[in-house]
């Protein structure tokens, strides 16, 4: 099987200054993360703040250079590729961010925002580019007369449509979307999720869809990977993960999601104790062990590796098997 993307053993550390004394410390944001995405597939990447999911996304599109590991894009390792080597590949992978306002030039007209990647990569003549941009506007549900508008004249949902149109301009094989709907109201969120799902089906492109909202991720993904404190703890196809989560953290995460059913108000709940520890001082062994109902002595000293569970999921846990 050929993958559009293979991440192997990705790690990233950041130097940080902490406290009032200005102590230097190192945070391991991502620690030995591996996964693959097939053409036309959506991999959802979930986890709570500080788990490293956004850092993974940035390494995939090479906004960040990994410290170790490989990022194989259509078979070629781009983890340490130079600017010049990356340039021709850039049109094959694109990124969509949470706040499209921050990633769109506020003075540029919407039409030019979508045309720019075509100009940069020397695609088509002016007439051909106009035709393509008009098609993209129509596809994402923007009106042709909105091409003359600047981003501030768009609503949040429309700005995200614009960011998607720009990402699609170069006909990429992969879009990395980092919390693309979390800033939107729920009725608008549904519009953008449905649009992304339709476009994927039409064009057969792949998504790495990064989000904290498990409901959103379940809707859009084929497979789902769960991160905790920089590490992958479980990865499985959507049905397996949501119908039979194996890792105690995945189970706790699913249990914690609020559901729109008042009967739950009265039902007692298994609430996970404690909070995510600081990545400055991650626990030894399995990073989840201080909060884990299954933790044993082994978990405090030996880090579990991803192994195939009978359910089909890959799970990093000593005691869940």
């Amino acid at each position: 099987m050929t993958f559009v993307l293979e991440a192997k053993g990705l790690s990233k550390r950041f130097a940080v200054t902490t406290g009032m004394g200005g102590h230097k410390a190192t945070v391991t944001a991502v620690d030995d993360v591996s996964f693959a995405i097939a053409p036309g597939e959506t991999l959802g990447l979930v986890g709570e703040s500080g788990c490293g999911k956004s850092t993974v996304g940035k390494m995939i599109v090479r906004l960040l250079e990994p410290d170790t590991g490989e990022v194989r894009f259509e078979g070629r390792d781009i983890a340490h590729a130079t600017h010049g080597e990356l340039r021709p590949l850039r049109r094959r992978f694109q990124m969509v961010f949470q706040d499209p306002y921050g990633s769109l030039d506020p003075r540029q007209r919407a039409g030019d925002i979508v045309t720019e990647p075509l100009v940069v990569h020397g695609i088509g003549d002016a007439a051909e580019r106009r035709r393509r941009v008009a098609e993209l506007f129509e596809r994402v549900g923007l009106r042709p007369d909105q091409m003359a508008n600047v981003p501030s004249q768009f609503s949040g949902g429309q700005r995200q449509r614009l960011a998607i149109a720009r990402a699609l301009a170069l006909d990429p094989a992969l879009i990395v979307a980092d919390e693309p709907v979390s800033a939107l109201d729920v009725s608008i969120q549904a519009q953008v999720i449905n649009l992304m799902a339709e476009i994927k089906a039409e064009r057969g492109l792949a998504y790495l869809f990064i989000a904290h909202d498990l409901g959103v991720v379940q809707h859009i993904s084929d497979r789902v990977a769960v991160m905790y404190l920089g590490r992958l703890v479980e990865i499985a196809d959507k049905e397996t993960l949501f119908s039979g989560p194996v890792h105690p953290y995945t189970r706790a995460l699913l249990e914690a999601v609020p559901v729109p059913d008042p009967a739950r108000r009265l039902a007692p709940r298994d609430t996970l104790k404690g909070e995510v520890p600081t990545p400055l001082a991650p626990p030894s062994g399995c990073a989840f062990h201080p909060r884990c109902p299954l933790a044993s002595e082994r978990c405090t000293r030996e880090r579990p590796l991803l192994r195939r569970h009978p359910s089909g999921a890959e799970v990093a846990c000593h005691n869940a098997f």
Partner: peptide
């Protein structure tokens, strides 16, 4: 209510319904 992507567990886990847009 119908535009919320509700987490589905059990047999429906692999087949979330299409979100209804407003």
């Amino acid at each position: 209510l119908r535009s919320i992507p509700v987490v589905r567990t059990g047999p429906a886990a692999g087949h979330p319904r299409r979100l209804v847009e407003i």
